[in-house]
Nucleic acid binder design. Structure first.
Lengths: 200, 200
DNA sequence: ACCTGAACACCGTTCAAGT
DNA sequence: ACCTGAACACCGTTCAAGT
């Protein structure tokens, strides 16, 4: 007899993974690495040497590698707060009177968060099989949140039926990538075009 | 008195840069490097070691570096034929009866070409200041071609006036990046949404 | 259980010597 | 004028030894 299926909400699963139980010294190192990564990435870009981040955090480089097996894990970890904020916002927007407007508000918030850190949109582009469980859990939480908003908007006949959340988020990520050097205003312009295209 | 300004057509400039005069042995090496890069990149992806490409081409690694100062130069060089084909297609489409349809046909051809080689969409994302003259010339030729089609479609009132070619191409590149692992069909679906959004 | 830093492997880049 | 391959520098990854 197999285990009970994981009926857990993706957002709850994410919170679990984001805060694994750790010995006190390990936790200190973990936090120091996040702080260091946040600073170094924002100053030197997403390709900054990982050794520099470890040095800045005052830990050995192997410690970094243990906590964050891939660069992408680290990139995603430093914005876990943004992901959780987006999920929370999505939940609140469920009760928004206009379902179509709720979706577009959330998409604008999404692009704002994801554009706030260099290299993040690329890290968020979904569908890599090699992604760690942690990164996959982020995608799953975002998808679950966006999916609920999209479905409501489609049920209200405000958004075309032949749009799905995976491609919609892929497109928004694409916009963030394309406008990375130009800023949020430009990203919002392009998002406006897309929103115009999916309405009905 | 300054030199006469470079009134040259961007497409002519590109053809110049793509076929620089070379000694016979240099040209042989150049071609061998292109062949090797094409094969290695398509088999091992756009991050394949450059040394392997040089070895496969039967030349020293420094020779590769001389001909193609950056990885991006090499990536772009192997698809110079695609760029020229797109420019030629754009010219032909100028005489297409429906100006809006001509633009969308060209955009679909663009995404097809650019999706055909892994890593190419990223190499085509414009606006890097560090780009070589060769890569810039490619962008300029594409922009000139797309710009003419867009302007005609806007003059015919088939496309909204507040869209410019730079952002439109950036968006199409981004779509190609976001759907790289999913294939051309998915890219075309997303392009459809954008085209719906820019119409009027 | 977790950490450390040195060792290793890999790859891009440069350069002195060659044709 | 162009080519070569070795030397160098850099960085990600692993591992034996330590707490």
């Amino acid at each position: 007899m197999p285990q009970a299926p994981p009926t857990t909400d993706p957002r709850a699963r994410l919170t679990e993974l984001a805060r694994p139980p750790m010995r006190a010294d390990a936790r200190r190192n973990y936090e120091a690495l996040l702080d260091a990564a946040d600073e170094i990435f924002s100053r030197r870009g997403p390709d900054a040497p990982l050794d520099e981040i470890a040095r800045r955090a005052g830990v050995g480089n192997a410690t970094l590698y243990r906590h964050f097996p891939s660069r992408r894990d680290l990139l995603v970890a430093i914005c876990i707060g943004d992901v959780e904020a987006l999920c929370a916002l999505g939940n609140r927007l469920q009760r928004h009177p206009g379902a179509g407007e709720a979706l577009t508000k959330w998409l604008r918030a999404y692009i704002k968060h994801v554009s706030s850190k260099r290299g993040l949109p690329a890290a968020f582009t979904t569908g890599r099989r090699e992604d760690s469980e942690f990164v996959s859990a982020c995608h799953a939480a975002i998808n679950a949140t966006g999916s609920a908003l999209l479905k409501k908007a489609q049920d209200a006949d405000e958004i075309r039926d032949d749009v799905n959340i995976v491609e919609l988020i892929a497109l928004v990520n694409a916009i963030a990538i394309a406008t990375e050097s130009q800023g949020l205003r430009e990203a919002n312009r392009l998002l406006g075009l897309v929103i115009g295209g999916i309405g009905r």
